[in-house]
Amino acid sequence: MRRFLLFLNRGKEHAAEKAASIREQLLSLGAELVDIEEHDIAGIRGEDYDCVLTLGGDGTLIRAARGLAGSGVPLVGINLGHLGYLTVASSDEEIPGVLEKLIADDYVIEERMMLNGRVIRNGHESPRDHEWLALNEIVVSRKTSAGPVHFRIYVNGAFLNEYKADGIIISTPTGSTAYNLSAGGPIIDPAARMTVLTPICPHSLYRTSIVLRAEDVLEVWIPEEERGIQSADFDGAATEELLGGDLVRISESQQTTPVVRIGGESFLAQLRSKMAAL
């Protein structure tokens, strides 16, 4: 790799100083181009860069993944927060080694699956420009109602189950260590291809997550008699309001997110290290 874009989260302390330091290190190692972007990464041309380094946390990398969807540019996460499951470096001591390996082409690229989500209202699908992408998860949950909501789940058109819960999380393997984990769902190797359905605070003894094939199409339907306003949230970046009778259709996206993995450390070893930091 020789051409880099540093995608900066200005909300993180010392982010600008860190970006300037990383830029100088990359140039000293022989990088041909190191640009810094801190606002909107959408529209970046894949042929202009070999790699995008995100400086922030998991949320910064996810935001970059959505903006770069379809470009093919791999992402490397540098963590400036407390804990980043998607990042490869979290301290000043780790960063130089990561940069050296990137310049030396000593890395592996993992293609992470993404999800598509569309709202079906009154039997009509939302326009194509309202098809949302998610790298982590799609969450359907209550917005204004005081109590739990009824959700009916269908898989490939067949009824699966009905939940009375605060919400439903449909997660990718990458997102399994995020909201899914907090709600009691399983941790999955991020390079795998599958989806995980996890209820949020279900009002039932049946609380188990369900792991499904990546190619399965899930539908989360809110019964027409359900009052109040619910919402469909896509990676915490886009939200659509839902009413009774609305349905959210979720499927595997044709887009993937290429994420750089440094060194030969396995996912389980990385997970053990992250969990020990809690």
Rank of each mutant, 00 (worst) to 15 (best):
N9D: 07
G11Y: 15
K12I: 12
K12L: 15
K12E: 12
K12V: 12
E13Y: 14
H14C: 02
H14G: 13
E17D: 13
A19G: 01
I22Q: 11
L26M: 08
L26V: 06
L27S: 04
L27T: 01
L29H: 05
G30M: 13
L33P: 02
V34I: 06
D35C: 01
I36C: 06
I36G: 05
E37K: 06
I41F: 10
I41Q: 13
G43N: 12
G43V: 00
G46V: 05
E47R: 08
Y49E: 00
D50T: 10
D50I: 08
C51S: 08
C51F: 13
C51Y: 08
V52L: 03
V52E: 01
T54R: 09
G56C: 02
G56A: 01
G56M: 02
G56N: 03
G57M: 07
D58L: 09
D58W: 10
G59M: 09
T60K: 07
I62G: 02
R63S: 12
A64E: 08
A64G: 06
A64L: 07
A65E: 02
R66V: 01
L68C: 07
A69W: 04
G70P: 07
G70H: 05
G72E: 02
G72S: 01
V73T: 05
P74S: 11
P74M: 04
L75P: 03
V76I: 11
V76Y: 04
G77T: 00
G77E: 00
G77F: 04
N79L: 00
N79A: 03
N79V: 00
L80Q: 04
L80H: 05
L83C: 03
G84Y: 14
G84N: 01
V88F: 11
A89F: 08
A89H: 06
S90A: 11
S91C: 04
E94N: 07
V98N: 10
L99F: 15
L99H: 09
K101T: 08
K101D: 09
L102F: 09
L102M: 03
I103E: 05
A104S: 12
D105A: 12
D105E: 14
D106N: 09
Y107E: 00
V108W: 15
I109S: 02
I109K: 05
E110M: 06
E111P: 10
E111S: 07
M113K: 00
M113I: 01
M113G: 00
L115K: 03
N116L: 00
G117H: 08
V119K: 11
V119G: 05
R121A: 11
N122Q: 09
G123L: 11
G123D: 13
H124T: 08
H124L: 09
H124G: 07
E125C: 05
R128K: 14
D129V: 08
H130I: 07
H130V: 13
H130F: 15
E131L: 11
W132A: 14
W132R: 06
W132G: 03
L133I: 02
A134E: 03
L135N: 00
N136Q: 11
E137S: 02
I138V: 04
V139R: 00
V139I: 09
V140M: 12
V140C: 05
T144Q: 13
T144G: 09
G147Y: 15
P148R: 04
P148D: 03
V149P: 08
V149R: 15
F151I: 05
F151S: 09
F151N: 11
R152F: 14
R152V: 12
